[in-house]
């Protein structure tokens, strides 16, 4: 890491997958290869096209150091050891080649974010870099300790979590008086949730 907004990756012949166009500098020998459909093969390509969870990825291979950055957003490193990371495609910057990525159905929550009904999952062993608007706050969820998150601030989660969409829309909302925080994602189970200190514009409003 260089600061918290630039990610430096040292490569020694191995490769990483990174979002297209996120390389800001490199030294040594590097090749950049565009991978259609997030490098998930034809099936992945088609799935992503259909699901709208678009992700243009390049494979970076070579020897040297490569620096990645994305619109000066904060970069959070997530170490995966076999578990699964769920992340919005727009927040995934870079993954080690050892990690597999795929799409997954999330249901109503995705729709409320204007992010579509699907999210990206990352599995395997290695590092993944996740971007956030402002440094992410990592919150633990344990049994009996549910967490509710604003859909616009959610970026990723790991572990075995059940998410459900929660509303407290009542008749008051219908007459135009809402609590303003009517839409939330509830996480139950055991795991970590990454939240950014900022909210995307969401379909559900200022939820």
């Amino acid at each position: 890491m260089q600061g918290s907004r630039v990610l430096a990756v040292d490569l020694a012949g191995d490769s990483v997958k990174a979002r297209n166009g996120s390389m800001v500098a490199y030294d040594g020998q590097m090749t950049f290869k565009r991978m259609s459909g997030g490098g998930e093969g034809l099936r992945g390509l088609v799935t992503r096209r259909i699901t709208g969870e678009k992700m243009t990825v390049m494979e970076v291979q070579g020897k040297g150091t490569c620096w990645f950055a994305e619109r000066a957003t904060e970069i959070n490193l997530v170490r995966l050891t076999g578990e699964r990371l769920h992340v919005e495609a727009s927040n995934l910057l870079c993954t080690e080649a050892t990690l597999r990525t795929g799409t997954e159905f999330t249901g109503l929550r995705g729709a409320s974010e204007g992010h579509g009904l699907f999210t990206t999952k990352v599995e395997g062993q290695g590092w993944a870099a996740v971007t956030s608007d402002g440094p992410a706050v990592i919150l633990r969820v344990a049994p009996g300790l549910p967490l509710r998150v604003d859909p616009g601030a959610y970026i990723a989660h790991t572990g075995n979590l059940k998410q459900s969409f929660r509303t407290d829309v009542t008749w008051r909302a219908v007459v135009g008086e809402t609590g303003g925080e009517s839409f939330q994602i509830e996480f139950e189970g055991d795991g970590l949730v990454y939240v950014q200190p900022s909210e995307r514009r969401t379909f559900a409003g200022d939820a």
């Binding site: 706050v137 300790l145 549910p146 509710r148 601030a153 609590g179 925080e181 939240v195």
Partner: peptide, 16 residues
């Protein structure tokens, strides 16, 4: 202020 809450634990309700 509306929309400034990003996450919460516990039993909280929001009223207009």
């Amino acid at each position: 202020q509306k929309g400034k809450m990003v996450a919460y634990y516990g039993n909280i309700t929001f009223h207009p």
